[in-house]
Design a protein around this nucleic acid. Sequence first.
DNA 1: TCCTTTTTATTTGTCATACAAGAAGGTTAT
DNA 2: ATAACCTTCTTGTATGACAAATAAAAAGGA
Lengths: 238, 238
Amino acid sequence: MMKTKSARSLHGHVVQELGQRIVGGKLRPGDLLPREERLAEHMEVSRTALREAMKVLSAKGLVESRPKVGTRVREPRFWHQLDADVLAWRCASMPTEDFVQKLLEMREIIEPAAAASAARHCNAEQLERLEMAFAAMENAANLDEWAEADLDFHEAVLTATNNELLVSLFSVIETALGTFFVLSARTAKNFKYSLPHHQKVLEAIRRRQPEAARRTMQRMVADSRSNMNRQSRGSGKG
Amino acid sequence: MMKTKSARSLHGHVVQELGQRIVGGKLRPGDLLPREERLAEHMEVSRTALREAMKVLSAKGLVESRPKVGTRVREPRFWHQLDADVLAWRCASMPTEDFVQKLLEMREIIEPAAAASAARHCNAEQLERLEMAFAAMENAANLDEWAEADLDFHEAVLTATNNELLVSLFSVIETALGTFFVLSARTAKNFKYSLPHHQKVLEAIRRRQPEAARRTMQRMVADSRSNMNRQSRGSGKG
DNA sequence: TCCTTTTTATTTGTCATACAAGAAGGTTAT
DNA sequence: ATAACCTTCTTGTATGACAAATAAAAAGGA
């Protein structure tokens, strides 16, 4: 689920390890990490590799280092919550119901607005990509193919806004769709339901109808929400 | 304008320097950087410090390093556009008109939705912070105090949603308000105009009226836009 | 006794050097 | 012509040493 490839390099591995521990709550805000020498020894890497990892975690707002005092875990309000890694770490050990609701709220804010913007600003090439993604959903042979094409469709909508700031929010949409895919009943029926929505969104964008695009996308996300709520009531997530 | 404090440490300085050059376009996507040894020499730091800087830039999606081939500048679509540093670097050498419009679009999407969400979810403490910020705007002795209180107000709205993902978008709002403050006519009159809007937003949130909060915030951002457009037509930005 | 100044100890920050690992491009053998 | 093998260049990692910063303790003065 959601590979972050950076586990090849040593310092990348340390980033993953510590990042997951911090976001996952095993290391708590205010906690003082062991000093670099010891921590490096404990992680079985050199101080050099450890420090490079620390700089990355620091760039993500997870830790803060100061001479003499050491490196401590920062409070969640400083974390770069929209960072793809931070989002992934948050989902690593099963996302809380609360977090899922926040992801859905983000989708409900971003995606309808993006669809409307796409209807206004998209160009021919971007429209074609949307159509390709939709076609891929129609022709999907299995659920995994379907999910991949769906992701592509949503990314294509964001891209079609021609606003790279909006495109950068794809990490959030991706995470939301990922948890949706994991948490909801993985039957073809549940998914194919939303295909008509996709088609209407595509149509509205093609016809340059921002408000229609917005409304349809709104319904699509709302359906996700109700589908999810039904699911989680059924299986009782915490 | 918009301090990023990390210029104290050496590697922090390198991050700033290279980040600014990349985002500012002096180093272009696909460009191959000099190899670490030479670059370190050229920047007058050790290879160690340079590499720590590189890891940070890599974490922001600006560069990509591979053995034997070297480190090259990535294409803008990979940049973490919502990162506070990236946004700041983008504004460093006078933001383009195009970028300002994208910032405004983000505000128009995020802030009304956040105001509505705040009206639904905010607690007593968060409401108090909103009221404090508003009071600070009323009592501002000069434009700088006003701008600071205004920023605080907008951050308080995001915080009041109780959705940390939304709060993380404050870097965007901050940048938008910053450029607005720089580009628009810096007269008391232009600013005091929006105070009634702030009051109405505050009232709507206090009274738990999501739709009223949304509409009022929408008007507030729209006013910013028209104010700005008027301004840029006048002085002809490109 | 209380406050200010100085010292000290500890941790991160930086440096220099050496070697390992990976990969592109050319070389050789089949 | 193709495939396997080298060469070589660059990043990746390790190590040891020292500089800089600063929190905490010690010393000095009112």
